[in-house]
Amino acid sequence: MTAATDSGRIEKRFAALKAAGRGGFVTFLTAGDPDHETFEKILLGLPDAGADLIEIGMPFSDPMADGPAIQASSLRALKAGANMGRTLELVRSFRAHDGDTPIILMGYYNPIYSYGVDAFLKDAREAGVDGLIVVDLPPEEDAELCVPALQAGLNFIRLATPTTDDERLPTVLKNTSGFVYYVSVLGITGTKSAAEVEIRDAVERLQRHTALPVAVGFGIRTAETVREIASTADAAVVGSAIVDRIAADVDENGRPSAKLVETVHKYVRELASGLRS
């Protein structure tokens, strides 16, 4: 494959974490939630609050694999005028302030397909995106976006799940780059969490198949769990629990309170606190 070299930010970040002897902390928020300006402020402050990598959700009207928290965040963002163009604008704005923290766009295929795959890959790369996670594109559909993304110099990060057995893992890992995202439970985002021992076994299983870093997510809500997971895996991902903080701090019209940005940063700081002692 004549792949363009990627930004290198993800690899560098995981190498730095390894050198520092600690696991990483990955935050997920939906772009434009609760509105464009507020989200921009939240985003710009995330590295300072303790986010080592940042996942930004691309809002979609029908997030089939997400639980109520992220469904609601997508709808709040769309209602406030979010779209793909504005999501990329947010990444550009972030990159003007931070050249190191990896940004991963996460979501569903239709908004990308609608934008146009080639145009999207070009614009995302130029905006400073480092990787993509597209929930409804399994390896069977790699020709759609995964292969073109790798060729365009964007990492394609795949989800592995408890149903991905040893026989299937090589298929899933084949075109995966950047890191592997292990979905620790069967189910939608934000609803339940797996036992620590199950996660350790699963991470070890993944590590037997790949040298890529492994991030673990789904159902993580406390600093203690973040620390536990990040000691087993290479990073822990928190999404719904952070998004819930936004939901709790907007009025019925989706307008944020004056302290929302600080509330979110404070919570992220708390979640990350166990990692940097």
Binding site: A65, P138, T161, V172
Partner: peptide, 20 residues
């Protein structure tokens, strides 16, 4: 064999569902 009718159809589902 990939479930395509021309350009339509396919298997656009989350990995959790793929084995099933």
């Amino acid at each position: 064999e990939n479930g395509h009718f021309g350009m339509f159809g396919g298997r656009f589902v989350a990995e959790t569902l793929m084995p099933l």
